[in-house]
Each structure stands twice: as C-alpha cells, then as structure tokens.
C-alpha cells in the first residue's frame, strides 16, 4: 500500500512550551491509527500538523511523498491535499461556521470546485446517511452536542477524503451517539479510508484501531505498536498517564485495578 504521511523528527512548541519532540512515524493508505496520550501531550497539535494547519519548527512532514510545508500548500497541491485529507475538530463549535447545516455540508465541496447541482445531491444523500435530514435548514448553533458532532463529521465527509483525522471523536457524546459514531467509523474503515484519531477512549481504540502511537508526557513517542498490544501494556499506559491504578481492600485481599475509560486487568494480592 502507498505511504500517506511520513514524519521525521517533528518538533513544535507554543511560546516556548514544547508540544511535540522528535516525533517520527509513517502512515500507509488504509491504516487505522490511534494517537493516545494524556491531556496536553500534543495529540491535537500532531493532528493539526498532519492537516497542514500548523507547521513543525523542527523535522519534516511529507504527504504522498511531497513535503507538507506552508509554501507548498497552495494552488493544485492545496486543492488535492484538502480534498484528500479531512479533519474533524474536537470542538464542533469551531468547525461549524455556516448559517445552516446544509450550507455547512456544501462548503467543502464548493470550495474544491464541485458543480453546485452535484453538491446539492451529495449533501442530500449525506444528510440522509447521517440521519439529520430534518436538521438541514437549522442553524448549527441551535443543535444539541450530538447533532453538532454529526454535522461536523458530515461537513468533512462531504468532500469524501481518503484520510480522516479525528480529534477526540467521542468526547461529550451520549452512549447512543457513540455507538453510531463507532459504526460509521467501522464502515469508513471497511471502505478503505485511512483513519487517524487522537483519543482517550480506549474501548474505541480496541474496537477500531490496528495500530497505536502513545505520546508520553515528555511529548515524544513512548510506543508505536499494534493497538491491542499497546492496550495490554499496563505499564506503558500508566507511564503515559492514560490510565490510573487504584488499590482497595476486600477483607484480606488487596484488589488493584486500573481506572480510566477502559479497564486493563485486575490483580489480587
């Protein structure tokens, strides 16, 4: 399979505070990659770098073999890159800026030069697929959290990108919408899309991702291995502050187990 992204020695900081240090990995077409890490470990920054929204201070990033630098992101390469890579932001309010949901979904395809009648057809189909046809003429700021998330995902899917970057996709969603999102991502994965998501939701990683990159609290890569292998490595997850160990007593037995959205395993002393 073709290589989509390659990062080598990537470093980034916010006003002198490091966000990423010496990050390097490659992503191939069709990969399903999870980026795990504690709050502030640099997950969101990494996704923004992959989407060409911010640019590294050190190291290099290539997309399909071409350097992903600010000067290159214009003209034909910009249009090709934006149509092939979609980014779902953690906070849907940041992503929804059009007067209606329908226009929100039309925005990307129109900017990329699709014919208006084709855009309308695509948007209607997408609204139906997402189950939000009734919300088409509503203003995004009047929607509930789950509806906003659906609209934000729809806005990105409207371009039909080959690579999907998702920042905390299940954050703030109710259980039913989480299941809906999981089914959608599974279908997209089945359709051969490359999925890169930054998340704390370890059960989503278990169900969906083939590979996991764990960012340590020092903002560098602590591990890059198959997802299930990373999830079984309790020490790694504890070190990266993704889970927390808790011990309590049941009579004479000391019961230790991890705390977090995903329980690794139990131990008894």
């Amino acid at each position: 399979m073709d290589e989509v992204f390659r990062l080598e020695g990537v470093g980034f900081s916010y006003a002198g505070r490091p966000a990423l240090k010496g990050v390097g990995f490659a992503v191939r077409q069709g990969d399903s990659l999870a980026v795990l890490g504690a709050n502030g470990s640099g997950k969101s920054t990494l996704l923004k770098i992959l989407d060409g929204l911010v640019f590294p201070e050190a190291g290099s990033v290539t997309f399909a073999g071409q350097p992903l630098v600010e000067a290159a992101l214009q003209g034909a390469f910009q249009r090709s890159f934006r149509s092939r890579v979609g980014f779902v932001f953690a906070e849907p309010d940041s992503q929804l800026f059009c007067p209606t949901v329908r226009e929100e979904l039309s925005f990307g395809p129109l900017q990329l030069g699709m014919k208006p009648q084709d855009v309308q057809k695509r948007v209607s189909e997408l609204l139906e697929m997402l189950g939000i046809t009734a919300l088409g003429d509503r203003a995004p700021y009047t929607l509930s959290g789950g509806e906003k998330k659906k609209a934000a995902i729809g806005a990105v899917l409207a371009v039909n990108p080959e690579v999907l970057l998702l920042d905390e996709p299940t954050n703030g969603l109710d259980p039913r919408t989480q299941v809906w999102l999981y089914e959608l991502l599974e279908a997209l994965k089945g359709a051969g899309k490359t999925i890169i998501m930054a998340t704390h939701d370890l059960s989503l990683v278990q169900d969906l991702s083939d590979r996991a990159i764990v960012l340590g609290e020092d903002h560098s890569i602590a591990a890059d291995r198959p997802a299930l292998e990373a999830l079984r490595d309790k020490d790694l997850l504890l070190r990266a502050n993704i889970i927390h160990e808790h011990a309590h007593r049941h009579g004479d037995i000391i019961h230790r187990h991890s705390h977090g959205p995903y329980s690794i395993h139990d131990e008894h002393d």
Partner: peptide, 22 residues
C-alpha cells in the same frame, strides 16, 4: 475560537474566496 474557525475553514479548502450555493 477565531483561530480554530479559520483553521477549520482552511482544512475544508477555503482559500480566501467564498463559493456559495446558487
């Protein structure tokens, strides 16, 4: 928020010219 929105627009192909539905 303004920063985030401009990034979201750039991410979806906005290049300074708004194209609207007819």
């Amino acid at each position: 928020m303004a920063d985030e929105i401009s990034m979201a627009m750039a991410s979806r192909g906005f290049d300074g010219h708004v194209r609207l539905n007819p």
